[in-house]
Design a protein around this nucleic acid. Structure first.
Lengths: 224, 224
DNA sequence: TAGATTGTTAATCGATTAACAATC
DNA sequence: TAGATTGTTAATCGATTAACAATC
């Protein structure tokens, strides 16, 4: 009943509410939330109603209460632990991202096939050898994993993760994982996103006379 | 007429065709392509028909010709140049990603506000100060940009990019950019993806008795 | 011909939007 | 009351799927 998009939007609303709370705002109307979230007022209401939260037309939504309501709806009781496989450049970026900022997820274990990295502490997280993957994931009761390994290793890593009991995978490898249906996969494929950007901005230029990209500059474009 | 999803799938098909070609496969049927792409045969045909490519039921699609046809449809004449703003952990990961592998995009210029990085060459790409952003983007005729800066800087960086003539932005900052409609934005928001994973895998466990994550292990889960 | 594959049309599905009544 | 906001219903829209005829 709750779609992926709805959950995504709810987590966006939460971020906005967090900012508002930091600014000392106590209540917000759906149209204000909508303006910040880039959605329609109606869609915001729809999402909030889906989690059982009703607004009042006199005071709007109480920022703290709404934020708490979203938290209760989206989050597990505790911070969710995540396993990271692949401590290359991207892996390190992810580690620093999740240790610097306090989101609802912590990388509880990192793995890499490079023996040179084993036992080393990278951005505050110990890097384990791949052989320990199944054991540590089970011991730590980790349900989610991030795949940040090269394409050629992604599928086999994913299968090991599933066998270890992982229920959800965030896949950064630009390849399609073939896994049992019970496993949820979120793909983050920047090559695909860039292709989309290339394609649609190119078409826009063609359709609209090629003016966009250069309307702010006087100099002509000479690619040579 | 061509949707974002279609373009995304086409670039996936291309990757699959590339692999097939490397394996020495000369022709492929839509149902084989569908199996590899996790789609239905009909949807594959639909996508390929959208770019004017028809299959034959005797020989299927010629792998090289189809790959070329997709390339012609999706790509500009040349490799597309991309600007990168933010040469932190993530920025470095992106640089190494795009220099190691040959995709259709090259990071032609990198920018960072940290004076310590200015002039340094990071993963083969010179890091420029932010002051040069507009000039270099115009000089190099760059149309796409990647934002890999912290949330608090993302909006202002995005506006500068748009003013410099950027038509499409790949945004890694977990925040919503408010930009003119003419600018296309692709958001890559891993916090949102993780929230989705948490939410839906949690629900699955509840619905199905909490068995999934541990069906391969004997030990009980004791989170303490 | 028989069988697999393809192409076309209509049906379905989910999400978003529009219109309007109800509320504060 | 008047005005802004909310909640409900029906309409729209796009993408996916299903059914079936056409093709090789």
């Amino acid at each position: 009943m709750i779609s992926r998009r709805t959950v995504g939007r709810l987590s966006l609303y939460r971020r906005i509410l967090h900012e508002l709370a930091a600014e000392g705002v106590f209540s917000v109307y759906s149209h204000q939330l909508a303006a910040k979230a880039g959605e329609t007022s109606q869609l915001v209401r729809h999402d909030l109603m889906a989690i059982g939260y009703r607004g009042k037309s006199t005071t709007g939504y109480d920022v703290h209460a709404l934020s708490e309501s979203i938290r209760e709806f989206l989050d597990a009781e505790t911070e969710e632990k995540v396993a990271l496989v692949g401590v290359g450049n991207l892996g390190r970026a992810l580690l620093s991202f999740f240790t610097t900022r306090h989101y609802n997820h912590v990388i509880a274990a990192a793995f890499d096939s490079d023996p040179g990295k084993h036992g080393r502490i990278v951005v505050g997280c110990r890097c384990h050898p791949m052989e320990c993957l199944e054991r540590i994931i089970r011991e730590e009761c980790i349900r989610l994993a991030i795949i940040a390994v090269p394409v050629r290793e992604a599928q086999s890593v994913a299968m090991r993760l599933v066998d270890a009991g992982i229920a959800g995978i965030l896949n950064f490898a630009p390849t399609l994982l073939h896994l049992p249906e019970k496993v949820m996969v979120e793909d983050i494929d920047m090559t695909m996103s860039l292709e989309r950007l290339s394609f649609f901005t190119r078409n826009h230029n063609i359709q609209e006379g090629g003016g966009h990209a250069h309307e702010h500059g006087d100099e002509r474009c000479r690619p040579d």
